[in-house]
């Protein structure tokens, strides 16, 4: 349930919606600041912070030294001290130096201090493959963070949701990992209100209603999943597509409700299969709707291999053809 107000809208790409979300919140709240590598004068390597440096100045749009642990670690200190930092990690594949700070401190400052200290911050990072990027620039490692209690993990797939979820994340009292599907940063435009609005964290969106099978996905994989669903409709297979939008905490109610209607499910993500979100979603179905189940849950995912260099990435990423084949398997069981 988005709290969209009557307002002027703009036709934005997903990455422009990131920028608009930051701009909107920074205007509204002087405590919000962005920090990271090349976010200032350069406006971010993907232009997600374009113009913010000129608008808000170097104290609120901060080019930092090249040090992810330093970026996140200092952001934790800032957050605990009353600011609302939105650090950017340039690519999700470069987040690992900051992993200790994220899991050992950001995720549990509230728990450890029994609520005395908190860590209201949003760590933004583009993730995922498909843009012919160099090594270490295409990974999809949301499961590492979804595994960590104390972190919320958000992955939008539309410009509208991007701005609304980002604003929710910035206003959230706890740390939020905000992973942006860079494959669709500029793939399409959508209407985005100029004013501030929120899309709640933890609520999935049904992108296509169907009765035969529920397909759960998120981020850049929403598009090939929708394509496969439309193609299958021509053969009389009525696919329901659920865009999770938040992968931690998962929207169990929407997952279970959809599954009870269809009795069959597939999960699509570009992250590797083993230890991925698909396993978690399958477990929820087992726990909550076992007696409705008519087929094994299909996992249509990246392979359990390192993400290949880009000459092979099209094979690695679930394509509409792979999604369709997986759905057919679940239907034919």
């Amino acid at each position: 349930m988005a709290t969209q107000q009557e307002t002027e809208t703009q036709n934005l790409t997903l990455v422009q919606a990131v920028r608009d979300g930051l701009y909107t919140e920074m205007q509204r709240d002087d405590d919000v600041l962005v920090m990271g590598e090349d976010v200032g004068k350069n406006g971010g390597v993907f232009r997600a912070t374009e113009g913010l440096y000129d608008e808000f100045g170097g104290d609120r749009v901060v080019d930092t030294p090249l040090a992810e642990s330093g970026i996140v670690g200092t952001a934790i200190g800032m957050a605990a001290y009353g600011l609302k930092p939105v650090p950017e990690i340039q690519f999700q594949g470069f987040i690992y130096p900051a992993f200790d700070q994220i899991v050992s401190h950001a995720a549990r400052l509230r728990t450890r201090s029994r609520g005395r200290y908190t860590c209201p911050m949003v760590i933004r990072a583009p993730y995922g493959g498909g843009i012919r990027a160099p090594e270490h620039h295409s990974e999809s490692k949301e499961a590492f963070f979804a595994h960590e209690a104390g972190l919320k993990v958000v992955i939008p797939s539309t410009p509208y949701d991007t701005k609304g979820l980002l604003i929710s994340a910035i206003r959230d009292p706890d740390p939020v990992m905000f992973f942006e599907p860079k494959l669709i940063y500029r793939a399409f435009r959508g209407e985005v209100p100029e004013d501030d609005y929120t899309v709640p964290i933890g609520e999935a969106a049904v992108r296509r209603e169907g009765t035969d099978i529920s397909v759960f996905t998120y981020g850049a994989m929403t598009r090939p999943t929708m394509d496969a669903a439309e193609h299958l409709a021509e053969d009389g297979v009525d696919v329901e597509v659920v865009d999770l939008r938040t992968v931690s905490p998962l929207d169990r109610d929407t997952i279970v409700e959809s599954f009870k209607k269809t009795g069959r499910a597939a999960v699509v993500h570009e992250a590797p299969k083993s230890g991925g979100l698909a396993g978690e979603i399958t477990a929820i179905i087992q726990e909550e709707a076992l007696l409705y189940q008519e087929a094994p849950v299909e996992r249509i995912t990246g392979f359990d291999t390192p993400f290949p260099l880009y000459a092979l990435e099209d094979y690695y990423l679930p394509s509409a053809a792979r999604v369709e084949a997986g759905i057919r398997d679940a239907m034919e069981f």
Binding site: G130, K273, F303, T305, D314, Y315, S319, A321, R322, A325
Partner: peptide
């Protein structure tokens, strides 16, 4: 991993490369 490779090769055999390449 072998199973994932074989399953993918079977799909590729069935649908052809063009189904997977953008």
């Amino acid at each position: 991993v072998r199973e994932q490779r074989d399953a993918f090769e079977a799909l590729r055999e069935k649908y052809g490369d063009e189904a997977f390449l953008r």
